[in-house]
Design a protein around this nucleic acid. Structure first.
Length: 257
DNA sequence: CCCGATCGTATCACGGTAGA
DNA sequence: TCTACCGTGATACGATCGGG
């Protein structure tokens, strides 16, 4: 499941929007909020003969492609900014550090008192926006409370329950659609390197085993092979994370209750 | 420290205009 | 067409600041 640019943009916090990018945990990448372009962590991006690591690259990208976050936002449709044409123009002058007088000169007319008025009104608007944002924040928080605790339920055999198991429905869905691109009962594309994701993937793999059946090692291997080529690794992790048990001589396997 | 300039805030009047 | 809102500009008044 790919998150589209709109969604990412509107989910961003004020800080993130100010930066113009967010860190995408699922893909280990810095993603430009303005155009959804991703810069994978750990990869070096060459730009104009200089090498940039991902975070720097996304910043540089915003400068190159979008000029600045301010520039991008202020030119958004009125519908999004809530600014009138005058307010937009004046805000642009404020950004340039113009005084009221200088703005009058730049506009080729008008009165400083008008600009002063605007300056004041915009400040007031800012305060109102802050209060409104906080109100909505509180509103969302209280309505989320019911759903937010929806951490997924885990098998009792889990040996160690820590942060790796603090997985929400939403996270689980995201991870599964990333690693099982052909569907939940399809093949595994790659085995994740992060522990938390391993747990999610393993849990899904477990749905292919019957709870009360005792499997031979060969049967286990066959099932796992149909999911992922490196079935040995999967098998080892299933045991390690306590999803499965095996007999001492490793000939019999069963789902841990 | 004082004085004048400037700033921030508040209010009013007037004209334009989008939309019910 | 009426209304509500916007932009403009004037004015008042206190706060603040910088220079002498």
């Amino acid at each position: 499941m790919q998150i589209n640019a709109e969604e990412r943009f509107w989910n961003a916090t004020v800080e993130e929007m100010t930066n113009g990018y967010v860190y995408d945990d699922l893909n280990d990448a810095y993603v430009c909020l303005l155009c959804n372009e991703g810069f994978e962590d750990g990869i070096i991006y060459p730009l104009d003969g200089t090498l940039y690591e991902a975070k720097k690259a996304v910043k540089r990208h915003i400068e190159d492609v979008h000029t600045s976050v301010f520039d991008y936002l202020i030119h958004l449709d009125k519908k999004y900014t809530g600014l009138t044409e005058q307010q937009r123009e004046i805000l642009d002058y404020f950004m340039k550090g113009f005084s009221d007088k200088e703005i009058v000169e730049a506009q080729g007319g008008g009165s400083p008192s008008t600009i002063r008025n605007h300056r004041f009104k915009l400040k007031e608007k800012e305060k109102q926006a802050k209060v409104f944002l906080t109100l909505m924040n509180l509103l969302h928080k209280s309505s989320d409370k019911k759903n937010d605790d929806k951490f997924i339920h885990f098998h009792k055999g889990a040996k160690m329950v820590d942060d790796r198991y603090a997985i929400t429905e939403e996270e689980k869905e995201k991870v599964l659609s990333t690693y099982f691109k052909q569907g939940l009962d399809g093949q595994l594309d790659t085995f994740p390197s992060k522990e938390k994701r391993k747990v999610i993937v393993l849990q899904n793999i477990m749905t292919r085993f019957k709870v009360d059946k005792v499997y031979t090692e060969k049967e286990i291997n066959e099932i796992l092979k149909s999911i992922y080529s490196d079935y040995v690794t999967i098998r080892r992790y299933l045991i390690e994370y306590g999803f499965m048990n095996r007999s001492r001589d490793c000939t019999e396997y069963w789902v841990k209750g």
